[in-house]
Design a protein around this nucleic acid. Structure first.
Lengths: 268, 268
DNA sequence: TTGCTCCTCACGTCACGTGAGGTGGC
DNA sequence: TTGCTCCTCACGTCACGTGAGGTGGC
């Protein structure tokens, strides 16, 4: 007996449905197992048969999965009548938080990579030293700068001409080492060599601080007063070094160590 | 007998170390279990005792974990002498891919949310319809536009004045519905009402296409020729509707349906 | 009858969270 | 001695991947 078969009678075996949907058989097994998509039919031998409405539901599931929803959320959306706006809104919020964290992390990684490039054959302990330094500097900077200033330091726009992806390579450690060498050698601060170093330090600082004098000043005080915390045990005479560089910049000025701050007050 | 205890002899019980490191006891158990951080000592009763070098290693682990490294990668970095640049470089690449995908997803979600807001009490099937429409339009647009044009459509900069976070609300479906109503009612295309609709459609299209005439033209052809694929079964006479709107824009021009394309050729 | 597809367990993933049931240390 | 801390299993998470061992269907 020949029966008319229209499209509504069409069924698919699990392998066929997997093929046309681009999923794996295991995935369809899984959806059956958790009750998300149970085929309407089975053969006598227990083989799954998917009817058209099953295929439709599968495509809905795939579409919603493409929005980053969890299978449990998809099930709810397809069975109860929750407001999809609530779900998507929550999804956007979660995603936004993740994206921000990811972007920050990528910046840190890029900065570390650039700093590692100054070493010839960087090791894990070079990396660890840099991470520790970064953490120490950030903690200290948070004491000396307002949250807004921190924000500006972190989200500095690249110069129009500069390649956007390449992070600013931090030259400051190398420059401070050069300055220390001159200081130890007893070179006069008005010596052109020292003045050149001071100038380069100012340029690098300005690049980092976005040219904000408030920030530059606060950062200088930070190094003078608490540089030891960032490089503990190195015995670098930070206060003297900063003053030495100040003398290189302004040969005629009196140089009292200034102790007043424009940054937020200490809290203990 | 009093023994001199210097810092090198200091040991911590697991709870103490957890407290000062901000981790949980379970986490330290886990690190011990997988051999990432095994305490140097145990009491007679089997309680873990962490020596200073253990604490140091823990802080290294925490620092590296903060870079998004997996525990297995951290172990390698701390035990073998792999180049940290390779690891961080790979990390940056992975992260970049994820961030791109995440940003695209967030845009899609935001666009869907905005479109859902046009409905009063949107349901899951409203959402599914929109998703299906979006997919259909994107597939079709990929046929009519070059990859560069697609890119520009996707990464359009917001207007200087507009709020950056809010996605452009797509007005086009509503406008086309109005146009269809006038068309069905037999309104003359030179009627000011129809001309106003056509103008608004042009403005909305320009906003979407970034004012690129090539893109606007390709998109118009797309709707005229294949609009049916995006709204299957609605019976909207797309070709006639697009021509009707063209007559509203240019009352004096002859209007042959044009079939030439500037977009990439079809492939079958 | 021979392949090929399908079936049902069941373990593994990653970094822990969360008990359960029992013992050590001040 | 009483709490508190610590111990060792062991299951659960999320969405499947990857076999193992066996049977159905053209």
């Amino acid at each position: 007996m020949l029966v008319h078969m229209n499209d509504d009678d069409r069924v698919w075996r699990i392998g066929e449905l997997a093929q046309i949907s681009g999923l794996t058989v295991r995935t369809l097994h899984h959806y059956d197992q958790i009750g998300l998509l149970c085929p309407s039919l089975r053969t006598g031998g227990g083989h799954r048969l998917y009817a058209p409405q099953d295929a439709t539901r599968l495509y809905e599931i795939v579409a919603l999965r493409g929005l980053g929803l969890q299978l449990e959320q998809i099930r709810e959306l397809l069975t109860t009548d929750v407001d999809p706006r609530a779900l998507l809104g929550e999804q956007v919020r979660t995603l936004t938080v993740q994206l921000k964290a990811g972007a920050r992390l990528r910046e840190r990684l890029a900065a570390l990579l650039a700093a590692l490039d100054t070493a010839d054959q960087p090791t894990a302990s070079d990396l660890l030293g840099l991470v520790q330094q970064t953490v120490a500097v950030e903690r200290l900077a948070a004491e000396y700068l307002s949250p807004e200033q921190m924000e500006r330091l972190g989200h500095r726009r690249p110069e129009p001409g500069a390649p956007a992806a390449a992070p600013v390579k931090n030259e400051l450690p190398r420059l401070y080492e050069q300055a220390l060498a001159e200081y130890d050698a007893g070179t006069d601060p008005v010596d052109p060599v020292v003045r050149a170093i001071a100038e380069q330090i100012d340029e690098a600082s300005a690049a980092l601080s976005g040219g904000d004098d408030q920030v530059t000043g606060a950062v200088r005080r930070m190094w003078a007063e608490r540089g030891e915390e960032v490089y503990p045990g190195t015995g670098i005479p930070w206060a003297a070094l900063v003053e030495y560089l100040d003398r290189a910049r302004h040969p005629n000025r009196a140089h009292e160590p200034d102790r007043c701050r424009t940054a937020p007050e200490d809290e203990q």
